[in-house]
Write a protein that binds this DNA or RNA. Structure first.
Length: 806
RNA sequence: GGCGGCAUGGCGGAAUGGCAGACGCACCGCACUCAAAAUGCGGCGGGAAACCGUGUCGGUUCAAGUCCGACUGCCGCUACCA
């Protein structure tokens, strides 16, 4: 008997319809079952449509979601659209179409592409960040942050993209260039909304100890938060009642401080302009530094510049010595106190600076080479010298001693600093959430009342940003001019909008209760579904989205909105898919693979399988069209197993071991995201079945169960065609029996001096003692030893037998 | 400069310290075919062989792709963070 050929173009849409009609993948609430929440990063619905990178993450968690359902969990695996953002706005400007229309078209296209891949998303819970019913809650969270003093407006130099005409967060500046358009970023002073993420620095750091994130992610977040322990020290100045505070991680080297440096933006310069005898030089240096972009500052990092301030000096508190104060842009106003004590002997930057300007270098930690020739920054080995009461101590001991001394004298104290900066939250753009604040000349910034949310984005004629740097909304006078809700005076609305990171900072909470009109989600739904059990996404979101959303979630937890402190229990990350030439896929390189084309050629099941089989999940892998066809060939082979199907119900005795090994391997490898080896194991099994020449019904059922999370359509179809009963996705996940994992006899390797010389069959249970007693007498072994003296024998049960001979 | 990761056939990649190269791709041979495609079967690191082979050099071990030390080369993140 021979079945019809495998035709994914027919069976895939059929099963997608059946799943939809049966509401097969909708999460229940309320439910008595245990929940499992799988999450992938919701896509930005770009005009280009789906990229082959999206299905890599989606398929991986689809496998987990489908397996969990078969294990009896109430699975939440949702999808939505992160739809605010610049590309849509730019497209709208160029083509004179409203961004909301562009967004709708793109979302529809994306959804249809995803549906063709058969992901088991719960489409009834779709969210869209541009939906007023969604962004009213984004605005609500902002109001709460404002209420708690975590949202504030601040005049500050921001990164300005002259091309996008928009302020950028530090995180959106890459190599001194705009992340989006590549234009060199300049600095511009503007009044900006800021979110005080720094208030959560410690919690964001501590929370990492309680979640199961891959180590890379933890390390990157820790680095980004950048906690450092040190001390603040007050230096007296030769000015009446004036001190200069510095932050240092090396208070132990205080005796080696030979000069000080303040940042060009340091207020001391303006305050004492009359006392600074070379003020003109200092001011000129400051103004030149201000003009430099972040990029230029970094580029010129190697070559230190600076000006010595004439007119006053500082006094080193430990030895009373007067030391000069310099201005240099290697000291940043935005970190620490904007001023440092310079210890050239033990800090590379200070050393470079001292060498250039011929400043004294005094060794205070012995153990390196001549500090006049080479800086010695090591903290592990040296002992203190030239440091009075610290002499002879290790660096760690000296740190403690000097901090105690400073604290006692009241001129210093222990201090923890973070690299993390507050989040610049304003965008001078149209296509984002309006910030629900009214500026009143009397009352200042007045929040909208909660019942007035959502503050709708008004329709405007032109979305172009203005040259003045104001948002396009500023031109909407009818919308901008309002009465102050507090005092009734004429007031103006805030015209900046929120960044794209806003809507994506809480979307996983909305999925729990997406149609709620009274709250961002009900407490009951949040307490049931949160936290996300498994979140997979790109490494590029580690320091931005992943940190921002943890911040918002921790904040909402403090507010009592949600019980879980951390939003994500587990975070994994997929590797990038490269073009066939091994380079990053891009239009300009002409190496983009379109998922639609691949699905049309080999089907969604084979496409999904290839995405999982191509290599280690967390590594970057080049696409291979012939490799993808190989997966289609495998599914053809699976399909043709029906040609050799017998009427036997059970798994035959001689196949028990291979099947149980496969159940174990596949089950464990899916969990460890080792999808490639899980699939390889199933290929091996199918090869074995083909060699044997027949397959029983029980064997086919088992294979289909194991394969179905990867390639669900073909498995459902074969399941139904062969009358295997209730739909496959309702079947329980199979379990293995350890008794069937091994054969009676095991092949081991026989080594002489560590080199494999022969293979032997031994009873599987043979212990180390039995092996050592019996194996040297085996005929094959005696032959290999050839009369030489056996110095040592090692038997590793089930593995090998090694003889060391002379 | 700092932090992290990686290095295995022609290619993607397997391998709790225990038989290196599973599985797949490409390629070669054979069968089927008038022929090709598809499919099936077989081969496929180097070497005539002894043997040699997991970026380089050392070390630990009965045994190292795997652990340790030094180095080289790529990739990612970060970057004058005091």
């Amino acid at each position: 008997m021979s079945v019809m050929p495998y035709n994914p173009a027919e069976i895939e849409p059929k099963w997608q319809r059946i799943w939809e009609d049966q509401h097969a993948f909708e999460a229940e609430f309320p439910s008595d079952k245990k929940k499992y929440y799988c999450l992938i990063e919701f896509p930005y619905p770009s005009g280009q449509g789906l990229h082959v990178g999206h299905p890599r993450s989606n398929t991986a968690l689809d496998i987990i979601a489908r397996k969990r359902r078969m294990e009896g969990y109430n699975v939440l695996y949702p999808i939505g659209w992160d739809a605010f953002g610049l590309p849509t706005e730019n497209y709208a400007i160029k083509n004179h179409i409203h961004p909301s229309i562009v967004t709708k078209e793109n979302v529809d296209h994306f959804r249809s592409q995803l549906k063709k891949l058969g992901f088991s998303f719960d489409y009834t819970r779709e969210v869209n960040t541009t939906d007023p019913e969604y962004y009213r809650w984004t605005q609500w969270i902002f109001l709460k942050l404002f209420e708690k003093g975590l949202a504030y407006k601040s005049e500050m130099p921001i990164n300005w993209c002259p091309s996008c005409k928009c302020g950028l967060a530090n995180e959106e500046v890459v190599d001194g260039k705009c992340e989006r358009c590549g234009t060199e970023v300049t600095r511009r002073v503007k009044s900006q909304w800021m979110l005080k993420i720094t208030a959560y620095a410690e919690k964001l750091l501590d929370g990492l100890d309680h979640v199961d994130f891959i180590e890379r992610v933890k390390v990157q977040q820790r680095n980004w938060i950048g906690r450092s322990e040190g001390a603040e020290v007050l230096f007296a100045l030769t000015l009446p009642n004036e001190t200069l505070k510095v932050y240092t991680t090396r208070p132990d080297t205080l005796f080696g401080a030979t000069y000080m440096v303040i940042s060009p933006e340091h207020p001391l310069i303006e305050k004492y302009k009359d006392q600074i005898t070379n003020y003109a030089d200092v001011a000129a240096y400051r103004d030149a530094a201000a003009k430099k972009s972040e990029f230029e500052r970094t580029e010129l990092a190697k070559d230190k510049t600076g000006v010595q301030i004439e007119g006053f000096r500082a006094i080193n508190p430990v030895n009373g010595k007067e030391i000069p104060v310099w201005v240099s842009d290697y000291v940043l106003m935005t970190y620490g106190t904007g001023a440092i004590m310079a210890v050239p002997a033990h800090d590379q930057r200070d050393w470079d600076f001292a060498k250039k300007f011929h400043l004294p270098i005094i060794e205070v930690v012995a153990g390196g080479k001549n500090v006049q020739e080479e800086c010695f920054p090591d903290v592990a080995t040296g002992k203190l010298v030239n440091s009075d009461f610290l002499n002879g101590l290790s660096v760690a001991e000296a740190k403690k001693a000097i901090i105690d001394w400073l604290t006692e004298k009241g001129i210093g104290e222990r201090k923890v600093n973070f690299k993390l900066r507050d989040w610049v939250f304003s965008r001078q753009r149209y296509w984002g959430e309006p910030i629900p604040i009214i500026h009143c000349p009397c009352c200042g910034a007045v929040p909208l009342k909660e019942e007035d949310l959502p503050l709708l984005l008004p329709d405007v004629e032109a979305y172009e940003p203005t040259d003045s740097g104001e948002s396009p909304l500023s031109r909407m006078t009818d919308w901008v001019n309002v009465k102050c809700p507090r005092c009734g005076a004429d007031a103006k609305r805030e015209t900046d909008t929120m960044p794209q990171w806003a809507g994506s900072s809480w979307y996983f909470m909305r999925y729990c209760d997406p149609h709620n009109r009274n709250a961002l989600a009900s407490k009951e739904a949040l307490d049931y579904f949160m936290p996300v059990d498994w979140y997979n996404g790109g490494m590029e979101h580690t320091t931005l989205h992943l940190l921002y959303s943890r911040f918002w979630h921790l904040f909402l937890h403090d507010l009592g909105v949600v019980s879980a402190p951390e939003p994500y229990q587990k975070r994994t990350s997929h590797g990038m898919i490269l073009g066939e030439n091994g380079e990053k896929m891009s239009k300009s390189r002409g190496n983009v693979i379109n998922p639609d084309d691949t699905v049309a050629e080999i089907g969604a099941d084979a496409f999904r399988m290839y995405e999982m089989f191509m290599g280690a999940f967390d590594q970057a892998i080049p696409w291979s069209t012939s490799g993808a066809r190989g997966c289609r060939k495998f599914l053809d082979r699976v399909w043709r197993l029906q040609d050799i199907l017998t009427d036997e119900e059970a798994i035959s005795q001689d196949m028990m071991v291979p099947f149980h090994q496969t159940i174990k391997k596949v089950s464990e490898d899916y969990e460890a995201m080792k999808f490639n080896t899980a699939i390889a194991q199933m290929m091996t099994l199918v090869n074995q079945i083909n060699t044997k020449g027949s397959i029983t019904k029980g064997e086919l059922r088992m294979l289909l169960l194991l394969l179905s999370p990867v390639s669900p359509h073909i498995c459902e179809e074969m399941w139904a065609q062969n009358g295997f009963g209730a739909p496959l996705h309702h079947q329980p996940w199979p379990t293995w029996d350890d008794n069937y994992l091994t054969e009676d006899l095991t092949e081991i390797a026989v080594q002489i001096n560590g080199k494999v010389k022969a293979k032997l069959m031994v009873p599987t249970g043979m212990t180390r003692e039995e092996g050592l007693a019996e194996l040297p007498n085996r005929e094959e072994v005696v032959k290999l030893v050839a009369g030489r003296e056996i110095v040592k024998a090692v038997y590793v049960p089930g593995r090998l037998f090694n003889l060391v001979v002379k």
